[in-house]
């Protein structure tokens, strides 16, 4: 089956932020794992989330819907979600079709996203 891996990095310098490095496939089957990861981060009050998509090969609408839903939750807590390195053309295209990049800031580098990822007033 299509696999998804989620590596979570929690920088020591920012207790409000986490980086998740997504790889593989986000579809209807792998979605629950991603959902759990994101909710766990919110449970830890890490409301600023950087999503590194460098190795993400596919994302379905359910995956994108999850990020939108989570965004709604983190925004209430003053947080934000930023994306970096959406390199796979198919992934970029799918996200673009939903207007993802009008909502989520997109950065070329993870480090840049980490620096910028906070809710804008």
């Amino acid at each position: 089956m299509g696999e998804m891996n989620v590596d979570v990095i929690k920088p020591a310098t920012r207790s409000d932020l986490a980086v998740i490095r997504l790889s593989g496939i986000v579809d209807a089957l792998t979605l629950p794992d991603l959902e759990k990861t994101l909710h766990d981060l919110m449970g830890e009050k890490r409301f600023n989330i950087v999503v590194n998509c460098q190795k993400l090969k596919f994302i379905s609408s359910s995956g994108m819907g999850l990020f939108l839903g989570i965004l709604g939750e983190v925004e209430k807590q003053g947080g934000a979600i930023c994306f970096s390195q959406v390199l796979q053309p198919e992934v970029h295209d799918a996200m673009n079709l939903l207007g993802f990049f009008d909502i989520f800031p997109l950065y070329n580098q993870e480090v840049e996203a980490v620096q910028q990822c906070r809710q804008r007033t």
């Binding site: 609408s61 359910s62 994108m64 839903g69 965004l71 709604g72 079709l97 939903l98 207007g99 909502i103």
Partner: peptide, 22 residues
């Protein structure tokens, strides 16, 4: 209604929209 769905951070319903787009 994509703008409304996005605005209210809905999680569902995007699949059919995407199908019709692509």
């Amino acid at each position: 209604d994509l703008p409304t769905k996005i605005k209210y951070r809905h999680t569902n319903g995007y699949g059919k929209y995407l199908i019709n787009r692509v």
